[in-house]
Design a protein around this nucleic acid. Structure first.
Lengths: 170, 170
DNA sequence: GAATCACTACTCGGATAGGGTGTGTCCGAGTATACATGG
DNA sequence: CCATGTATACTCGGACACACCCTATCCGAGTAGTGATTC
């Protein structure tokens, strides 16, 4: 799996924590002055700046983030964390294609069955699809808000620490 | 996902159907004379022979198939389909690594937390791992015997047709 | 003093190279068969 | 006729190229701020 998924999720969480900072804005839409640049988000985890920028662009295309160019520009959450599922992020980065793609080999070669809709007869694709559906359901059921709550439960000091770091070195 | 997974599963099912053929052997261990070559398994679905051979080797290493070299050689099921889960095949081909690997970026950079076991604190990795676990559970719960039963339910004529084809053109 | 305008600096956005993992192919190691040979 | 040894053909097994996608990077488009200029 593309590791940009992990970066994107961390960045979204960081954006949420930063957005709750001093000015009272919550980091969501509405012209809040605190748009965070890709460079700072990358610096926090020592990631390649330009590449993270590319991933964030994908999130913008998916409507998860909103971006603004120019000075004072950067990225902002387009909606609350409770409206962003892990599935949304994965689809935004990895694309909508499912991992197991049935190449319909059952419909090729001497053993071909020409009676329409061959995919419906492929029990293998059906079983693999069922497993992947379970994976997708699990991801779609969990929002970034849930993950954030879990993270704060495990490390209550993290939000304040992150806010501090992003506030300093302005 | 590696598409060799699909090939491997189809080949296993074909081996099982062929094994139940005329001589009364069930295709499992025990010196049954009907070992099927990679070339014939590949020809049935018009797949590249050498590459399918490579995948079948992986199944042998995983103990799913048993191989025999030389004339009259080929591949045979090492155990019954009811003892082969979809997870076994996936692991044999794809390897045991999980798709989402946590690169521990939370432990890098200025925001690093040096209090031991950082992975335990990564709520993202925990959530992704939970989803992947659901996927693995689903695959581990379904055996190739289940898939075969489903396939025969959808296309009752398939086993006989496959047996015929592999018996002919000897 | 206030408004206007050009300039500058900064950020995203998409287009452009490099590396690693699948994808596909090839030739050698090993063996059961068939045959020639000798008893 | 039967046993033995040898040659042979066939199959798996691992080593060798090719291609595609992920990774990483760079430069251009667009914009908010800044300062000078003018009324």
């Amino acid at each position: 799996m593309n590791e940009g998924v992990e970066w994107a999720m961390h960045s979204c969480l960081n954006l949420a924590w930063i957005g709750e900072g001093g000015d009272g804005r919550d980091g969501r839409e509405g012209g809040g002055p605190r748009a965070v640049t890709a460079a700072r988000l990358a610096a926090y985890h020592e990631l390649p700046t330009a590449y993270l920028n590319k991933q964030l662009q994908a999130l913008v295309r998916a409507g998860i983030l909103s971006s603004v160019s120019g000075p004072r520009g950067g990225f902002r959450l387009a909606r609350g964390l409770d409206r962003i599922t892990l599935m949304d992020v994965v689809v935004a980065i990895e694309g909508p294609d499912e991992a197991f793609r049935c190449t319909e080999i059952i419909g090729q070669g001497p053993g071909a069955v020409t009676t329409g809709r061959p995919s419906a007869e492929c029990a293998i694709a059906e079983a693999m699809g069922r497993a992947e559906l379970a994976w997708r359901r699990e991801l779609a059921a969990r929002t970034l808000a849930d993950v954030r709550a879990q993270a704060e439960r495990q490390a209550p000091s993290a939000p304040e620490r992150i806010r501090r770091w992003f506030a300093s070195t302005a």
